[in-house]
Write a protein that binds this DNA or RNA. Structure first.
Lengths: 92, 92
DNA sequence: TCCATACATTTACATATGTCGATATGTATG
DNA sequence: CATACATATCGACATATGTAAATGTATGGA
């Protein structure tokens, strides 16, 4: 069973800065420089967090010139929800 | 904002052994000694994981004599689901 | 009361993770 | 091409986390 992979995806969300990023992305697509102003973290730290979120599939990216635009991935988010549900559903 | 508390709860699920425990508890209530046989971990490690799961609210416990019986908490699980949803919902 | 059983707590340690400064890479613009 | 800007990667470090052995605590039976 692939508990390791699922744990890795859940870990992508298990950090307060990444939760703040997710909340911000719920509104609309944001570029990295915008997120950087919202959060009190360094640019390298933000880049690290965005990599984890993108790798997990929760966040999509779009490169436009010098800018990286990040947004919630509808597919990734739905897959995540179902994955979580597989662990916490109580089968009434 | 309570990102820290939410991150803590999500972390409770972000481990492969704890995911295996959740899958096992989906079937029915289990005592610690039973879980111990299912998982290849030491007794102290299991106890540690159960504490994290109980603290997160996802798992309920019931003490019966020498035995500890663990089960999914319906309330905790529903609260967890909604908490997660608050971060990944895309507001269509 | 003594002992075995079931579980929790403590302690120690190796690995994982979050963080930032420094540096590298890529992109537009003069 | 040189420079500025946006972002990624690297290196180092402190803290968090998962793990198990040893020990502590509670419960029940002989």
């Amino acid at each position: 069973m692939g508990y390791r992979e699922d744990a890795r995806k859940i870990k992508a969300l298990a950090d307060e800065n990444r939760l703040a990023i997710m909340m911000s992305l719920r509104q609309r697509e944001k570029c990295a420089c915008y997120l950087l102003e919202e959060l009190n973290i360094s640019q390298s730290t933000l880049s690290h967090h965005m990599k984890l979120l993108c790798d997990s599939g929760l966040v999509d990216y779009r490169k436009e010139g010098k800018w990286m635009h990040y947004s919630l991935s509808r597919e990734g988010v739905n897959a995540f929800r179902e994955m979580i549900d597989g662990y916490i559903r109580t089968d009434d």
